[in-house]
Design a protein around this nucleic acid. Structure first.
Length: 391
DNA sequence: TGTCATT
């Protein structure tokens, strides 16, 4: 069984964290988080959108590609495997789940795999969780390619790029040598100007080798200086080296290993992977909206056989299902979400429904999300009643 | 020289 998300929620509501210094930053982040809706469609946002990416097993050319196995990239450093499983388990039943760690240090390498039982859930996970912001990261969710030696060591480091070159132009330059999985141009943290340095990850190592042969020392179209193209360092090697060095030089200050890290965990170590908006909100959670007190438990809970149906009111006209997944998923198993739309305009009529499997998780979601400010609207969240159903 | 992309 996955970590119960209500544990997270209860931590949030315990009040023990409210005075922590990160609270203000989280509040600032919250406005953009959920008011923008899901950060995750295939057409917008997130690293996935920038590349001719591996989102389709069909495109990769093998009919044997798994339609259930996902790779999740850009996970926050301190996210555990159980938390990964818990987050993705809110979409559907998981066959297996693995967070990849450095063999020596035990540190997360920032990515993992989630294998669903049902391919539909894998697809749903991509549609709803790709681009989700967790702490300072924007996670990327895509189909995992079949593991093989040919896809390893296919990442290139590129320097000497014209400062005006965009990521798209970089990809155009390299795409003649193969399928690009990811690309990035590093920018100055302050000015946002390109540092003339970037990365290109190809699908296969042979493609990367060909790109080095073809582009290293060459001038891109319109450029005055040649670029350098070589294989990138493996960041996990660096981590291990730094650790070993530290171990050798100062045993008393060495970095904690996996067991020590576990011991260091304490009561609110799981808040962070909730969407930041949810974290910030609970300390402000109002229970009065438009003069009407609305507390979880006042309404008779609507149990509908398949789960507990929750009524969500005051959604924006452009609200969609993914916002409901993002808000409720962290609290536990969500089996269904629905935004009610006007038949002719297709705009949200201001409300929707969420079905959750477990009562305690549903109750926690309601207690936490009722009164949540989404953009310029304050949501009302309660168990669905018969009266509501009539509307 | 990365938001650590193949268990």
């Amino acid at each position: 069984m996955a970590v119960r998300l209500c544990d997270v929620a209860s931590l949030l509501r315990s009040g023990s964290w409210a005075a922590e210094p990160w609270t203000g930053q989280v509040i600032a982040a919250m406005e953009t988080q959920l008011s923008n809706g899901p950060a995750c469609n295939s057409t917008t946002n997130g690293p996935a959108a920038m590349s001719n990416n591996c989102s389709s097993p069909v495109e990769s050319g093998s009919i044997e590609d798994s339609k259930t196995n996902l790779i999740v990239n850009y996970l926050p450093q301190n996210m555990t495997q159980e938390e990964l499983k818990s987050l993705f388990g809110s979409i559907g039943e998981i066959e297996s789940c693995k967070l990849v760690r450095d063999k020596i240090t035990g540190q997360s390498l920032g990515y993992g795999f989630v294998n669903y039982v049902d391919p539909k859930d894998a697809e749903k996970a991509i549609n709803t969780l790709n681009g989700l912001r967790l702490q300072t990261k924007t996670i990327k969710v895509s189909y995992a390619r079949p593991s093989s030696a040919s896809i390893r060591d296919a990442n290139l480091y590129v320097s000497g790029l014209p400062k005006t070159m965009t990521q798209k132009e970089l990809e155009q330059l390299f795409s003649q040598y193969g399928r690009i999985i990811t690309s990035r141009i590093l920018v100055d943290q302050v000015t946002g100007v390109s540092r003339g340095v970037g990365f290109i990850r190809f699908d296969r190592r042979v493609e990367a080798e060909e790109a080095i042969k073809g582009l290293n020392g060459q001038k891109p179209p319109g450029a005055t200086e040649p670029i350098t193209v070589k294989f990138a360092n493996n960041p996990s090697q660096k981590t291990s080296q730094a650790l070993l060095s530290q171990l050798y030089q100062s045993p008393s200050r060495r970095y904690p290993g996996p067991l020590a890290q576990q011991a260091q965990r304490f009561r609110y170590d799981r808040w962070w992977w909730l969407p930041t908006a949810l974290v910030s909100f609970s300390r402000f959670s109002p229970v009065t909206i438009d003069g009407v007190t609305s507390l979880a438990g006042i309404n008779l809970p609507g149990h509908a056989g398949t789960g507990w149906c929750i009524f969500v009111y005051n959604l924006a006209p452009d609200a969609d299902e993914s916002i409901l997944w993002q808000m409720f998923g962290p609290f536990g198993a969500v089996t269904n979400v629905k935004v009610i739309r006007d038949f002719t305009t297709n705009k949200c009529k201001g409300f929707g429904f969420v079905t959750m499997t477990n009562y305690d998780e549903a109750a926690m979601a309601i207690a936490s999300l009722n009164g949540y400010r989404l953009g310029d609207r304050v949501l009302q969240v309660s168990f669905k009643t018969n009266k509501t159903h009539k509307a």
